[in-house]
């Protein structure tokens, strides 16, 4: 790899990292897993003057549930995808995330890459953004001037852009606990393991007495950013998960997608895959509920 020249800094405390960011905000890029940043630097598509490597910062590797209130999952900025893939906590309580984790790129990338890094990179073909939108998660950002919690729904600002300020470090992602009688999955069409999604669909459904109380649907790779299919979600809430309801939601999700034709397939094709995958994901939810 022959990137442009850059200065490399490796802070050992969060305070140090934040003050470096505050000082060098415009010139610096944060390095966590490096699975997007390093390829960009290799190709000289990105040429940051400074790299702030946070891998030595303590307190960013937590993957745990906070049980207060409805409860939520905390994913630290240095939690690798491989850890998410192996997590029993995700398998038992966060099925959409458990389904997505093993579909992130390939095993080598998963060993290094992080969920928070993927959110911050904001690739419209990134999988975690759709998952966070479906689950209504949030990103915790810190800077020398304080902390703010940014809902996923307002975090993404277009392809490869977020509302994160350049002096802010995303330290954690939070995902509300889905609660009992919840189901979810992530379905991904890819040309090969390690490819970006042609189409990815995150679904999450909570029910009470057979009626949907909350529905989340996130779409990957079919727009300038990850898409939350709000109309489809709302069409499900208050209804039973019947075949008809599922078909309607699937159509609305397809209508919410804004795919473009490219080597991965035509826009029509991708829209159809959204429809089929949303329906399949919801049918799986229905079957799981019935079981």
């Amino acid at each position: 790899m022959f990137p442009s020249q850059f200065e490399y800094l490796a802070p050992t405390t969060l305070e140090e990292a934040l003050s470096l960011l505050a000082e060098h905000a415009e010139d610096a890029k944060v390095l966590a897993g490096g699975q997007s940043l390093i390829p960009l630097m290799k190709l000289r598509f990105a040429a940051p003057a400074m790299i702030i490597d946070i891998n030595g910062v303590p307190g960013l590797s937590h993957l745990q549930e906070d049980r207060r209130g409805r409860g939520y999952l905390r994913v630290g900025a240095l939690v690798r995808n491989a850890a998410l893939e192996r997590s029993e906590l995700l398998k038992s309580r966060y099925p959409t995330m458990a389904a997505a984790a093993p579909l992130i790129s390939d095993p080598l990338v998963r060993n290094q890459g992080t969920l928070v890094g993927s959110l911050v990179h904001a690739d419209p073909q990134g999988d975690w953004g759709s998952v966070l939108l479906a689950l209504e998660g949030e990103v915790v950002a810190k800077s020398t001037s304080g902390e703010r919690r940014i809902p996923a729904t307002s975090f993404f600002d277009g392809p490869f852009t977020t509302v994160l300020r350049s002096d802010e470090l995303a330290v954690e992602a939070r995902v509300p606990a889905p609660g009992p009688r919840s189901f979810g999955t992530y379905l991904k069409l890819e040309r090969k393991v390690g490819d970006f999604a042609t189409v990815g669909v995150a679904v999450s459904v909570s029910t009470e007495r057979g009626v949907v109380t909350r529905a989340g649907i996130g779409l990957t790779g079919v727009g300038p950013a990850n898409i939350k299919a709000v109309d489809a979600e709302q069409a499900l809430v208050g209804h039973r998960l019947t075949g008809k309801a599922i078909q309607q939601a699937a159509h609305l999700a397809a209508a919410a997608s804004e795919p473009r034709s490219d080597v991965r397939g035509s826009a029509d094709y991708k829209r159809e895959v959204v429809r089929v995958y949303v329906a399949r994901g919801l049918h799986q939810a229905f079957d799981a509920k019935a079981a």
């Binding site: 069409l189 040309r191 042609t198 991965r264 397939g265 035509s266 094709y269 159809e272």
Partner: peptide
């Protein structure tokens, strides 16, 4: 023979 190409052929 991508999945998209198969789908288009069927359509």
């Amino acid at each position: 023979v991508t999945s998209g190409a198969v789908w288009e052929a069927i359509q």
